[in-house]
Simulated scan of single mutants.
Amino acid sequence: MSVEAARLVRVPSHGYAQLLGLTPEHLNDDQCRIPSATGLRLAELTARHVSWPEQAMLLVQQSKLGALGVWDYLITAAPTPLEGIHDAADYFATVADVSTDRLEIAVDGGLVTISHLNQADMDHEAACAIRAYGLGLYRQRLSEAARRNLIPVKVTLAAKAPRCHDLLIELYGTRAITFEAPTSTITFLTADLTTPTVHAQPGLSTLLRRHADQTLATAIPLHSWLDLFRTTLSSVYDEATPTLGVVAQRMNLSVRTLQRRLSEHGSTWNGEIETLRRDHVTELLLHTTLSVDAIAARTGYADARTVHRAVQRWHGTTPITLRRTGLRS
Rank of each mutant, 00 (worst) to 15 (best):
Arg209His: 06
Thr178Lys: 08
Val112Arg: 07
Arg230Asn: 14
Trp225Ser: 11
Thr194Pro: 08
Leu137Gly: 00
Glu274Arg: 13
Arg148Lys: 11
Thr178Val: 08
Ser36Gly: 09
Leu168Asp: 11
Glu170Asp: 15
His199Leu: 15
Ser234Lys: 01
Glu283Asp: 13
Leu40Thr: 06
Glu264Val: 08
Arg250Gln: 15
Glu283Ala: 11
Leu253Tyr: 04
His14Gly: 08
Glu54Arg: 07
Ala212Tyr: 03
Met57Gln: 12
Pro79Ser: 10
Thr325Ser: 13
Thr317Pro: 06
Arg210Leu: 13
Val95Thr: 07
Arg309Glu: 03
Trp314Pro: 02
Gly173Glu: 13
Thr317Arg: 10
Glu125Trp: 02
Leu58Trp: 04
Thr218Val: 15
Leu193Pro: 09
Val155Pro: 01
Thr282Ile: 14
Asp72Glu: 08
Gln119Phe: 06
Asp238Thr: 00
Arg163Ala: 15
Val292Met: 04
Ser205Trp: 01
Leu189Ile: 02
Pro182Ile: 00
Ser267Tyr: 00
Leu285Asn: 09
Ala296Cys: 04
Ser291Glu: 07
Val236Glu: 01
Leu150Asn: 06
Ser205His: 01
Gln312Ile: 00
Asp192Ile: 10
Arg298Asn: 04
Asp101Cys: 08
Val70Leu: 04
Leu58Met: 14
His287Leu: 06
Asp29Pro: 10
His199Trp: 14
Leu285Thr: 05
Ile130Cys: 03
Ala127Gly: 11
Gln18Ser: 14
Cys32Gly: 07
Gly21Asn: 12
Leu27Arg: 11
Val281Cys: 12
Thr100Phe: 08
Trp71Lys: 02
Phe229Glu: 12
Ala17Leu: 09
Arg33Gly: 03
Gln31Pro: 00
Ala67Ser: 15
Arg305Gln: 09
Thr23Cys: 13
Tyr133Trp: 06
Arg41Leu: 09
Trp314Lys: 04
Arg260Ile: 04
His280Trp: 10
Ser63Asn: 15
Thr178Ser: 10
Thr197Ile: 13
Ala145Tyr: 01
His116Gly: 05
Trp71Ser: 09
His211Asp: 11
Thr317Ser: 13
Ser234Glu: 03
Asn118His: 08
Ala127Asp: 09
Thr46Gln: 07
Thr325Cys: 03
Arg7His: 04
Gly136Met: 01
Gln31Thr: 14
Glu144Gln: 14
Gly39Lys: 02
Val9Trp: 06
Thr194Val: 15
Arg131Val: 00
Ile177Asn: 13
Glu272Asn: 05
Ala248Cys: 04
Ala56Leu: 04
Phe179Asn: 04
Thr38His: 03
Val246Ile: 14
Pro242Val: 01
Glu180Lys: 03
Ala217Val: 05
Gly300Lys: 04
Asp227Gly: 02
Val50Lys: 10
Leu226Gln: 08
Val112Gly: 06
Asp121Tyr: 05
Ile186Ala: 02
Thr197Ser: 11
Thr241Pro: 01
Glu170Arg: 14
Val112Tyr: 05
Pro53Ile: 12
Thr268Ser: 15
Thr306Glu: 09
Ala37Trp: 00
Ala129Glu: 05
Glu25Ser: 15
Lys64Ile: 14
Asp30Gly: 11
Asn118Thr: 01
Arg260Cys: 00
Leu276Arg: 10
Ser234Gln: 02
Leu262Met: 15
Pro12Ser: 14
Gln201Trp: 06
Trp314Cys: 03
Leu322Glu: 11
Arg261Ala: 06
Trp314Gly: 02
Thr100Asp: 13
Arg230Gln: 12
Leu22His: 13
Leu19Ile: 06
Leu45Thr: 07
